[in-house]
Design a protein around this nucleic acid. Structure first.
Lengths: 342, 342
DNA sequence: TTGAAAGCGCTAACAA
DNA sequence: TTGTTAGCGCTTTCAA
């Protein structure tokens, strides 16, 4: 559509093109012609040149020249395909952390497409930021991060790495807790509704879940893989219903899947928790969990605390220069609500 | 906590402090000591000086110096207290628009606190961006925008102004549509669950809703104001139930309120849509509307198209210099689902 | 009414 | 092993 030349047009170019000096161009472009007594002829000449050449001001230069104290910039790379509510929870956590810790940073969010982190991490972006928090990197994105030496401090949220500081939840615990609940309730026929594992923590969670159950003689677990969405959860339950016997308890690996599943059970006259108890790995919004029908029992993830931990680490990396990749792991807890009481 | 000096420490300062030249400092700080044969003594001296002085690199300078073609930056100012899912819908809309139109922009999101847009729009931020999209500005934020002449092109989402280009939905239509549905269904005792109007469109919607109903002899409308959240919706319905007679139809001004209301009706054994029909102004996620129990009938807002329109306007403002404040208004539609069929 | 020169913080080339 | 110099794009004196 638009012709984007790779070499940017500068004030100098306009000056050369019109035959006036750079300073005059600068004055005109900032709308100060009148105040500075620039002739109308010159003004028009410059403005039209700017348009034809496709001038866009270089904001770095303006900033540099402005001599304003430049706050360090922290960039949050966010997988924009993530349909969950996490972003708002995470952002809120970050902002609270900024305030509580008295940090003085300029926070910005850069959406990126899963598997294409590399494309978003241009040299320009790297040069333009003092610290980076990366959320939900895919395996492919992780490979990129592991293989390349980026010049900016990076903290990984919910991923493991020996190269970068990481902030995680205890995935083993996340798998163990729901198993314990189901066992305590004497359940015998569990099912797990999950989406393709786009990070290894998901495998760990599921494996520990299975392991704990198998330790108590339960090894026949219905497993349905779908996409991480409400429609995915809905479809997988419909599929489940075709294959009797029904499970007596279900673990959903995300709130999206859980809400879809609940709707499907409801539509088919299956009572939650009467016939089937349901627990979700609570990666969504608290309120949406509390006000669903029935309200959703979850393994609650400490998103806000994790956001704070990410910020602390990045801040440390920015102030101290040399940082070793530490691993912070947060604990989760079971929150019993209607879909699986106690 | 941390001592943030307002004047930033530069490489020059470190040079003066350590008695070596700026270039040496630069080399050391970028970890090139070995490659460039800088002595260990100097290296250590510089690094420790950087730490004690609290040096953070000025990224503008790095960028400027790097000579990389600088993509124009578009900043999305987002009210971070907004609990809705809109951000993800809006962002997705923006990104699709970027791709579809072949725009070459660097997109960034800046969260801000409602009523405090002013604080986020620092000179620095303004200088650092080529175009701004502002979402959900409060009345106070709007006053700030109207009173000040900012140097960067701005487009307003979901707000009106004679100063800036705006992208809106047709608020009259949004008020009219649900009224028409309820009238068509022969409803007599409507209620409206709403939150404090933080922009005038909300008043317009409600006034037209009331007007349309009054035109058909219905002027006794239950009205409950609560906060825009699920708990708000829940509370307001509990309050409503105390004051018999119950309405026979309810308009919720946001999905959050609607979901809370639905839960409250459910908990009190009131059938939706059997006893009460419910319509929401659908500012949330499509999927969450579709898979709620019952699924939510909404006035559907064309978020993605609006995001595209915002981007088009900003792009136009960036390329052409002089732009007049046009007003684009999008049409909404009624989507019938279970909570109010037909 | 316009232009020349200096400098914001940083780095690369070259000199010492 | 380190320093000097020039220049990225822009704006602000000051001079013409």
């Amino acid at each position: 559509m638009r012709n984007v030349s790779l070499i940017m047009v500068t004030i100098k170019d306009i000056a050369k093109y019109t035959g006036v000096s750079p300073s005059t161009v600068s004055i005109v472009l900032r709308g100060l012609s009148e105040k500075r007594n620039i002739s109308e002829v010159t003004t028009k000449k410059v403005l039209s040149a700017a348009k034809t050449l496709g001038y866009t001001p270089n904001m770095q230069s303006k900033l540099l020249r402005s001599n304003l104290p430049s706050l360090p910039v922290i960039t949050l790379f966010w997988d924009s395909s993530a349909r969950q509510h996490i972003l708002s929870r995470f952002l809120k956590g970050l902002q609270e952390s900024l305030i509580n810790n008295g940090y003085n940073y300029d926070l910005q969010v850069k959406p990126y497409t899963l598997d294409h982190l590399e494309d978003s991490m241009t040299t320009r972006t790297l040069l333009g930021t003092n610290g980076i928090i990366i959320c939900n990197a895919s395996e492919k994105d992780m490979a990129f991060l592991e293989e390349n030496d980026l010049s900016v401090p990076i903290v990984l949220y919910n991923r493991y790495s020996s190269k970068y500081p990481t902030v995680n939840m205890d995935d083993k615990e996340i798998g163990r807790l729901p198993a314990e609940v189901f066992l305590r309730h004497g359940k015998k026929r569990p099912a797990i509704l999950t989406s393709p594992a786009n990070f290894n923590g998901m495998n760990i969670r599921e494996n520990i879940f299975r392991y704990e159950l198998s330790e108590h003689g339960i090894s026949d677990i219905t497993r349905i893989v779908t996409d991480d969405s409400l429609s995915g959860g809905y479809k997988s339950v419909k599929e489940m219903i075709l294959n009797k016997p029904l499970p007596d308890c279900v673990l959903c690996t995300s709130d999206n899947i859980a809400f879809g599943a609940i709707k499907a059970f409801h539509d088919n006259g299956i009572n939650i928790p009467g016939q089937i108890e349901l627990i979700s790995i609570g990666n969504g919004s608290r309120e949406y969990e509390e006000y669903s029908i029935p309200s959703l029992s979850v393994i609650s993830l400490p998103m806000e605390a994790m956001a704070d931990a990410c910020l602390t680490r990045i801040s440390r990396a920015i102030t101290d220069q040399n940082v070793f990749p530490d691993k912070r792991e947060f604990s989760s807890e079971y929150i019993a609500r209607e879909s699986c009481p106690f």
